[in-house]
């Protein structure tokens, strides 16, 4: 079983919290005092893994913490709201900070959230897809409100993380059983952060 830490990055108000809550709450009720509140078991390509979402929503005041979340995360979800062009335009800053801290190509997904807000759409799907090509990453539109595509975001990200062997190892989670040789690529733990 592999472990991944996923950080969700994006401006305030794009629905990072909702995305994380939607993802994790599928299996239990959020209780901040429970360590596992941010962990979720996920089956991707018939293989089980744990995804830990590092959620730092509400901490936008702490701008300098972003560096730390990026460090902690192995995979990233870069979120904007399709109903706000400003959040779309600020993505480049997050990408830069990822590239700097991660020294190279971070594994991340581009997510256009709030796809349920059809009437208020400011960023077209094509623009999102074009930016994703430029970033060289996958692109999905989601609705944390209706749960549309939420699980798919994490599934795709885990798949991408598994394909990449070069991810720097993170400290093993104590509960993780040791892996045998035929699973080399799963040895590295991956984590994600929600910012």
């Amino acid at each position: 079983m592999d472990n991944w830490r996923v950080a969700v990055l994006g401006d305030g108000g794009v629905g990072k919290t909702a995305l994380a809550v939607q993802f994790t709450l599928n299996c239990f009720t959020y209780d901040p005092t429970i360590e596992d509140a941010y962990r979720k078991q996920l089956v991707v390509d018939n293989r089980m893994c744990f995804v830990e979402v590092i959620d730092t929503a509400g901490q936008e005041e702490y701008a300098t913490l972003r560096d730390q979340w990026v460090r902690e995360g192995q995979g990233f979800i870069l979120v904007y709201s399709i109903a706000s062009r400003a959040t779309f335009n600020r993505l480049e800053g997050f990408r830069q900070s990822m590239r700097r801290v991660k020294r190279g190509d971070p594994i991340f997904m581009l997510v256009g959230n709030k796809s349920d807000k059809v009437q208020e759409r400011e960023v077209s799907r094509e623009e999102g897809a074009a930016l994703a090509r430029q970033f060289n990453c996958e692109f999905i539109e989601t609705s944390a409100k209706t749960a549309q595509n939420v699980e798919r975001v994490f599934t795709s990200l885990v798949r991408a993380l598994r394909q990449t062997k070069s991810i720097e190892p993170s400290p093993p989670v104590p509960t993780k059983p040791p892996k045998k040789e035929d699973h080399h690529h799963t040895k590295d733990k991956k984590r994600c952060v929600i910012m």
Binding site: T17, A18, V21, Y30, P32, A57, G58, E61, Y62, L65
Partner: peptide, 14 residues
């Protein structure tokens, strides 16, 4: 208090 601010945001959403 960063984590509590996250908690508050979560509670608001949940």
């Amino acid at each position: 208090i960063g984590m509590y601010l996250t908690d508050i945001a979560h509670i608001h959403d949940q």
